[in-house]
């Protein structure tokens, strides 16, 4: 699937941007030119050679804070997606396989989760359990999980009721064998699309929560937190929100682009598209070689 995604220009751009963001999360804190927590007397300074993105209201280097905050911002959104994936996909598949009682119970739970406003719920839970990144991400991951539940359940339903699966079951194949042999290949693509899409959603959620001061304790920097802080000083530094906002927008955009690319290469229409491209690229060199025209 990865190779097919990379055949699309949009896929290549999305993967490139996300790799860059991932790299920033890995080495960003090491690249910070100054101590991101060290306050100085040089508050709200303009961009300069010493401070490429200026300083914040406490005199801290904004570039260093941006680089240092990338790890929490990226890892936070990954945490959300992985938790949502685990909590959503497994029950989604099992709701088709384990009979009506489990199906009914899991659907009701999912309905309940969908009805909860995630931001308010996350705020309430962190108020109860303490304001930490783990608490906030676990709650958000659980609240986002219905997306994975529905996607995996829909894909599983389509496969489980197909004739070849019924034939396998009648022939005595175990549930595990059927899942491994037939389910995964059909269920995985929509889950991959949902994963990429949720990565963007997770990023927006993490940014929103840290914007509200939830999940990360000060003075730890995050992209959302930097954006929120900069908005309070627009009169002094109108340019300040641009850098954190651009990073957030680029990451979310790349995630959505990746989701589109995965959908294009895994769906029926996508496969047709790829086939057409392959045929065209196979034809184009011959035309070029001959120099002829159709």
């Amino acid at each position: 699937m990865v190779r097919r995604v990379l055949t699309l220009p949009s896929g290549r751009v999305a993967v490139g941007v996300l790799l860059a963001v991932g790299l920033l999360a890995l080495v960003g804190p090491l690249l910070a030119p100054q101590d991101p927590l060290a306050t100085t007397t040089d508050a709200l300074a303009r961009p300069s050679v010493q401070h490429w993105l200026g300083t914040d209201s406490l005199g801290r280097d904004v570039l260093s804070r941006l680089l240092d905050g990338s790890r929490v911002s990226v890892v936070g959104s990954l945490e959300v997606v992985v938790i949502a994936l685990v909590v959503g996909v497994v029950p989604g598949i099992l709701s088709v396989q384990l009979g009506r009682v489990f199906e009914w119970a899991s659907l009701r739970i999912v309905d309940t989760l969908i009805a909860l406003p995630f931001l308010l719920f996350a705020v309430a839970v962190t108020a109860l359990l303490g304001n930490g990144i783990t608490q906030a991400m676990v709650v958000t991951g659980v609240l986002v999980s219905p997306l994975f539940f529905r996607v995996s359940r829909a894909a599983t339903l389509a496969v489980a009721r197909s004739a070849y699966v019924e034939a396998a079951v009648i022939s005595g194949a175990s549930v595990t064998w059927v899942a491994r042999r037939h389910l995964w290949s059909k269920v995985l693509p929509p889950i991959a699309v949902a994963f990429a899409q949720t990565l963007g959603v997770g990023f927006v959620i993490v940014s929103s929560l840290t914007f509200l001061g939830i999940g990360v304790q000060p003075p730890a920097p995050t992209w959302g937190g930097l954006l929120a802080t900069s908005l309070g000083f627009l009169d002094q530094q109108p340019w300040a929100p641009i850098a954190p906002a651009a990073l957030i927008v680029a990451t979310v955009w790349a995630s959505n682009l990746l989701a589109d690319a995965i959908r294009d290469v895994t769906g029926e229409a996508g496969r047709d598209l790829l086939d057409r491209r392959t045929r065209r690229s196979a034809t184009a060199p011959s035309l070029s070689r001959t120099g002829g025209t159709p």
């Binding site: 060290a38 306050t39 209201s57 406490l58 108020a127 304001n131 001061g213 003075p219």
Partner: peptide
């Protein structure tokens, strides 16, 4: 930011503080 200033000033003399925001 007042908590961050206190943290920074106490840190400068060797007192390490962790800011805990408790609603």
């Amino acid at each position: 930011p007042d908590a961050e200033i206190v943290q920074s000033q106490l840190g400068a003399v060797g007192i390490t503080t962790t800011i805990k925001v408790d609603k």
